[in-house]
Structure formats: C-alpha cells, structure tokens
Computed example of a mutant assay.
Amino acid sequence: MGMDDKIKNAAQDLAGKGKEAVGKATDNERLEAEGDKDQAEAKVKKVGEDVKDTFR
C-alpha cells in the first residue's frame, strides 16, 4: 500500500474519533456507533498494510 492509502486510513480514523466524540456529546448513539465502525475499519486496513510491508 502506498502513502496515499496510509493517509486515507489515518483520516478515516480521525473522522471516526470525531464522530464518536460528537455522538457522545449529543447523546446520539447512532453517530457514536458510526465513529466506532470507522475507527475499526481503519485499524483493520492498517493491520493489512503492516502485513504487506512485512513481506516486502
């Protein structure tokens, strides 16, 4: 994976953290769950990148 993908994943993680924080502040469970999901997806993608980098 290239640097572009790493930047996109970091942005997705930050967006997820933002959604989660806003969801908690406004007591919006749906938005909070969306934020958790975005963060989890970003983490899974990062693990995939790390595995690929290991085999290079």
Rank of each mutant, 00 (worst) to 15 (best):
G2S: 15
M3K: 14
M3T: 11
D4E: 05
D5N: 01
D5M: 09
K6H: 08
I7K: 02
I7G: 00
K8C: 10
N9I: 07
A10I: 04
A10D: 11
A10H: 04
A11D: 15
Q12E: 15
Q12N: 13
D13I: 04
L14E: 13
A15Q: 12
K17Y: 10
K17G: 14
K17D: 11
G18P: 01
K19C: 10
K19P: 08
K19E: 12
E20V: 00
E20R: 09
A21G: 02
V22F: 12
V22E: 14
G23H: 02
G23W: 05
G23Y: 08
K24C: 05
K24G: 12
A25R: 02
D27E: 15
D27Q: 15
D27H: 12
D27V: 08
D27M: 11
N28V: 07
N28S: 14
N28C: 14
N28L: 06
E29S: 13
R30D: 15
R30Y: 08
L31T: 08
L31E: 12
E32Q: 15
A33T: 05
E34T: 00
E34Y: 01
G35H: 06
G35T: 03
D36L: 05
D36A: 15
D36R: 10
K37P: 06
K37Q: 13
K37Y: 09
D38Q: 15
D38W: 06
D38T: 03
D38H: 05
Q39G: 14
Q39S: 09
A40W: 01
A40I: 01
A40S: 06
A40Q: 00
E41S: 13
A42M: 01
A42T: 03
K43R: 10
K43G: 08
K43P: 00
V44K: 08
K45L: 12
K45D: 15
K45E: 15
K46F: 10
V47T: 10
V47L: 04
V47Q: 07
G48E: 09
G48L: 04
G48H: 01
E49R: 08
E49N: 07
E49K: 01
E49Q: 14
D50G: 10
D50C: 00
D50Q: 07
V51K: 02
K52S: 14
K52Q: 07
K52T: 11
T54I: 04
F55V: 12
R56H: 11
